[in-house]
Computed example of a mutant assay.
Amino acid sequence: MYRSGAIMAWNVFKFCTALRGIGSIMILLVLAVVGLTYYAVVFANYGPALFEGDIASFTALAVLILFHILLVMLLWSYFAVVFTDAGSVPPNWRPVLDEESGDSDPLTGSEFSAMPADATNPMVRYCRKCNQLKPPRCHHCSVCGRCVLKMDHHCVWVVNCVGALNYKYFLLFLFYTLLETSLATLSLLSHFIAFFSDGEIPGTPGMVATTFLAFVLNLAFALSVCGFLIMHISLVAANTTTIEAYEKRSTPRSRYDLGWKRNFEQVFGMDKRYWFIPAYSEEDLRRMPALQGLEYPSKPDLDAQGL
């Protein structure tokens, strides 16, 4: 029995190590798909159409302008997720306990151990892998090897954990990816249909093959990202994460669910000018503790304040 458990733990460790190793490959893969799409849309099809005159030039110009705007926002959001730390537990972090409202979560699950000998509150969560206290909604990531604030999941596509400090950027990446891939799919649809016609297709065989492949890839990404984005929008509306939704499948609604508007603001901030860009205003960062990943208002808090 012991030997079986040891083998299982060793296999999981190998899997996590492999995920760390393919990081740069996934970034190159994303850039390769972007490059292929850019060549198919700009160089192979709509770039040359700019010089055809009449309505074709106007259509090509409109497609190219919108394509480049969405591409800039997509890449900005993507690299914001890649290079933004999802959130780590500060050294020597200690919770502000409110025993009356029960604001601390009890130790649950196999990833927790008994509190250190000098701990005075048995309700504080503790990670035995990091040997440190855990803020609310914090989870240990086996791939990153550390505790992540409000961890949602570890994403191999962005080579990073998605958590408190970069969740908004991840959602914007999905949003702009959906728009960009949908635009590319629609703009290449006529060229894709022409591939199966009996008429002569303009362009070199390489351009035709690139257009065909770009259409198939963008259609596949648009469909998959659409479902993924819808799932995360529902999570934001309920103020929960992928991990919390999995853990609480049979339990009542989360106590962090304050209504869809306040839930949305805890991810995107209150300044509407920043909702669609991967950044926060300084005022939001200063007045909204939830954006820092350590404190979250909850229903017991509101009850205690009479709100």
Rank of each mutant, 00 (worst) to 15 (best):
F215M: 07
N45I: 09
A290L: 00
L133E: 03
G163F: 10
A194S: 15
V81S: 11
L186V: 15
M231I: 09
E282F: 02
I22F: 06
S4P: 03
G203I: 13
S234L: 13
E180Y: 13
Y78R: 02
L217N: 07
P91D: 15
L229W: 12
G203T: 09
R273W: 10
V72P: 03
D284A: 06
N239S: 13
F221M: 12
I233Y: 11
A86H: 04
Y256Q: 01
V216N: 08
V33K: 05
H139D: 01
L19T: 04
T120H: 14
D257E: 08
V30D: 06
A80L: 00
P297I: 08
L285N: 09
W275A: 07
G5L: 15
A114D: 06
A304V: 13
L183K: 03
A117N: 03
A164V: 08
A56E: 10
I69E: 00
V41F: 03
K261W: 15
Q292H: 15
E282L: 12
M207F: 09
A245Y: 05
F112S: 04
V216R: 07
L61Q: 10
F196W: 14
K14S: 03
Y78C: 08
M151R: 08
L229V: 08
E99W: 00
A194D: 14
N239W: 02
R286E: 14
E244M: 09
L285D: 01
M8V: 06
V159Q: 04
G47N: 08
D271I: 10
M1E: 12
L294Y: 01
Q266G: 15
A60W: 08
E283F: 06
I193L: 14
G259T: 03
F112E: 11
T241H: 11
A117I: 01
R262I: 05
W76R: 08
T17Y: 13
C127S: 14
G227P: 09
K272L: 08
T211M: 13
V12F: 13
Q266D: 11
M123W: 04
T181R: 05
F83E: 01
V33H: 01
F83C: 11
Q305Y: 05
T211Y: 00
A164P: 01
L291S: 05
N131H: 14
P116A: 00
V41R: 05
D198H: 10
R20Y: 03
S104V: 05
T177S: 15
A290E: 15
S57Q: 06
L189K: 07
I233D: 02
I230A: 14
N121S: 05
T84L: 05
C147F: 00
P90R: 03
Y274S: 14
E295M: 06
F221D: 04
N131M: 13
D98C: 10
D54V: 05
M270I: 12
E244R: 15
L258P: 10
I201D: 02
R3F: 07
N92E: 11
E247K: 15
Y296R: 07
F51Q: 06
W76Q: 04
D118G: 04
K299F: 03
T59E: 05
C147I: 07
S110L: 12
P202W: 07
H68Q: 11
S101G: 15
F215E: 05
M1L: 09
F67G: 04
P252R: 07
W275R: 08
E180T: 10
T84W: 04
A164N: 04
N160T: 04
T241I: 09
V34Y: 10
P289L: 01
Y256L: 06
H191Q: 13
N121D: 13
G21R: 09
H140P: 02
L285H: 04
I230N: 03
L258F: 02
A9Y: 09
